[in-house]
């Protein structure tokens, strides 16, 4: 059974903000299917009582003192921007309302 359909790839592409072509949908569907079926092997391990590892360093509480350090000038900050107006980053119109914090 296929792990992933063409429609699912289209959904993933949209979530990932990738305007994939029709042709790519076919290619990716096949490739992702192979990859996902292969990586699904992790499910063979019985690990119900095993804690997950998110970090390999045994550190906790790495904190910074609340002291101001110099940052970038606005010129530096905006130097790589594709489009700038009024010392701000200009973007095309936004359709979605803020999803908020």
């Amino acid at each position: 059974m296929a792990a992933i359909s063409r429609e699912e790839v289209a959904h993933l592409a949209r979530l990932s903000r990738l305007a994939v072509t029709e042709e790519e949908l076919d290619t990716f569907a096949g490739q992702l299917d192979v990859i996902l079926q292969s990586v699904a092997q992790v499910g063979e391990v019985t690990a119900a009582d095993i804690p997950p590892t998110s970090h390999s360093v045994p550190l906790t509480n790495v904190l910074r003192e609340d002291v101001v350090v110099p940052g970038l000038t606005p010129q530096e900050a905006l130097s790589g921007a594709p489009d700038v107006a009024e010392q701000r980053f200009r973007v095309p119109r936004i359709l979605d309302e803020d999803v908020a914090s």
């Binding site: 993933l12 903000r17 990859i35």
Partner: peptide
């Protein structure tokens, strides 16, 4: 913006990067 973001990422990333992102 959403369309421009998607077109940008589509054009800017290669196939392997797109595969892994998905």
């Amino acid at each position: 913006l959403e369309e421009v973001m998607s077109l940008t990422r589509e054009a800017g990333f290669g196939a392997e990067v797109k595969r892994r992102i998905m």
